[in-house]
Design a binder for these strands. Structure first.
Lengths: 315, 315
DNA sequence: ATGGAGGATAATAATTACTTATGATCAATA
DNA sequence: TATTGATCATAAGTAATTATTATCCTCCAT
């Protein structure tokens, strides 16, 4: 009797046209992929791939079989999803790839709420580079992606998740600490801490600064750091000021280690998007998360900021 | 990842509503059936069957899952059949249940020819009672059934295979041995060997005798035997005469141990039918056998009789 | 109550199916 | 043309799975 795991190996190998890559996607050794495919070939006396030394190609037989193998896999997926969700109880696994650093701050909160409603869904979040998220979605290795920049792709469906405000933070004992508001031009005079500029997010920010009358080239940059967290830390230490996502700064703000200062006319937000593969079956769990996010993202953002503020009160 | 073998166990158990019977059908131990089903139940935290002491019933979850499980099985069957039949080469397994004794005589011949055309199809023939053939077809344990009486059933497709002539045979040294023809009434005077009457085939024969002016109750029955082969043997030994399928008698006739005598106006044939499950997928191998039989049954019958006749020539 | 039918469970044996390590082959390149 | 790197095949060892047999347990019919 044919075996679904083997079929999955075959289909993945056919998609990758490369056993080693297929092995990676399947979290298997290359040897296992070879063996699985040979196993099908042996039991049915078929040649699925034509081997040309260092490359493999689908044989005619392989090509004709592929759609049927996909059918089996699809109906199996349907069944598995149904099995995981009997009597309305949503269950299953969700693999989420998160590309944006702000994800680190709200995702745990989001998932905590989600888990409260759907306790049987197991979620796994991995932080990864944007491109890996997109690859993972197209690979179908990931169910949901979280990214910070818009993307358009035939196979990807994108949904705005939240808008993260960009704010100016200053050290707790900075002269501006108790100011209501400063003028854009004032920013140029203060020591500024920035991230290394190759960061995609930072390019977007710089564009926005320009649009609000702050030329990033004229910033008094006293320090450049690799990641946003380090930048935040540097501000806490009093080295300078910076623009940062409100969500990221929430904890430091709540602890009073940095202060938020409004910049006249400055109103920038960074979007966060949720992405999924469209042509792929929507499992119950996926659908529920998608729907959940659509319904609750605003209140979740508020709750997150509020909760972080609570940290100070609790002390 | 779900497992097709387990699904098959589940579906069979659901059909039988009895794990032990399912085990039999699957050629597995009852324990294995229990374990397979528990394995699904455990991995998906579902209750597929409700156990009531000594009986099991499909749970609501089981009921809702069943059609999807069937879908998976069907698409898998489709794939397997395709895999077995790439590049037009028909292959696969055929399980044939044969209910009629005449099957014993022509089936080997039929399959030998079939194998010549389709060498990669493995056939397995089991002789069994008529009811077991029908059950096996409905069970989908058998691909093809061979039976001697017509059957009508929503799920069964029936195809006449051949007509087996019923002839009167007499011992080689019987006074009639060289007669061209006798009258129906003459038969009543000779010692007659019959099968036990509960045999279904025999009832049909008796009806036919009556229609040809031979009242079976008036036969001079000197011996009753359990099976047709024994009857034939008894005729060879000179104990009496009998009506028998020409196909069964072919070997004895060819060896000259019995003689065929025509009875005036007597022209009875026993049909042989081929049956299959309609609502079931037609595998390539099945389709080929079906088609093969339709095309060749006449010449096969002729060939069979001729080949048997050859036995004498070869000596 | 008691025997039997039907399912669960435990222990064991057999088989599968991974993994790592290594070998073989081909293509690109120096 | 030898070398290197990429890629798949194969071998050996081991882990994991899965079936089997042998009880055991429970419920129902007698």
């Amino acid at each position: 009797m044919i075996n679904i795991a083997e079929l999955k190996v075959f289909v993945t190998a056919a998609e990758e046209m490369n056993f080693s890559r297929a092995a990676q996607r399947l979290h298997l050794s290359q040897s296992a992929v070879s063996q699985n495919i040979q196993s099908i070939e042996r039991t049915y006396r078929v040649e699925l791939f034509v081997r040309h030394g260092r490359s493999v190609q689908l044989s005619e037989a392989g090509k004709s079989i592929l759609p049927m193998a996909r059918d089996v896999l699809n109906s199996a997926r349907l069944l598995e999803d149904a099995l995981s969700n009997v009597n309305g109880e949503v269950a299953g696994d969700l693999s989420i790839g998160c590309a944006t650093t702000s994800g680190r701050y709200f995702i745990p909160n989001l998932l905590a709420s989600f888990q409260r409603d759907y306790p049987h869904v197991r979620t796994r979040v991995s932080l990864m580079r944007r491109q890996d998220v997109l690859d993972g979605l197209l690979d179908q290795t990931l169910n949901i992606g979280i990214i910070g920049r818009f993307v358009e792709h035939r196979d990807l469906q994108i949904q705005p998740l939240l808008e993260d405000r960009v704010i100016l933070i200053v050290p707790a004992h900075h002269p501006w600490a108790n100011l209501k508001q400063v003028k854009p031009a004032d920013v140029l005079e203060q020591p500024f801490i920035s991230r290394e500029v190759n960061s995609g997010t930072y390019e977007v920010l710089f564009d926005n600064l320009r649009r609000h009358g702050i030329d990033p080239d004229n910033l008094n940059v006293v320090m450049q750091l690799g990641d946003a967290e380090a930048v935040e830390m540097a501000v806490e230490k009093g080295i300078g000021i910076t623009f940062i996502s409100e969500m990221m700064a929430a904890r430091s703000l709540a602890l009073g280690r940095v202060k938020k200062v409004a910049v006249e006319g400055f109103n920038v937000t960074q979007p966060v998007y949720m992405v999924r593969h469209v042509s792929r079956m929507f499992t119950h769990a996926e659908a529920k998360l998608w729907e959940f996010v659509k319904l609750h993202h605003e209140e979740l953002t508020a709750e997150l900021l509020f909760n972080l503020a609570d940290v100070t009160l609790a002390r």
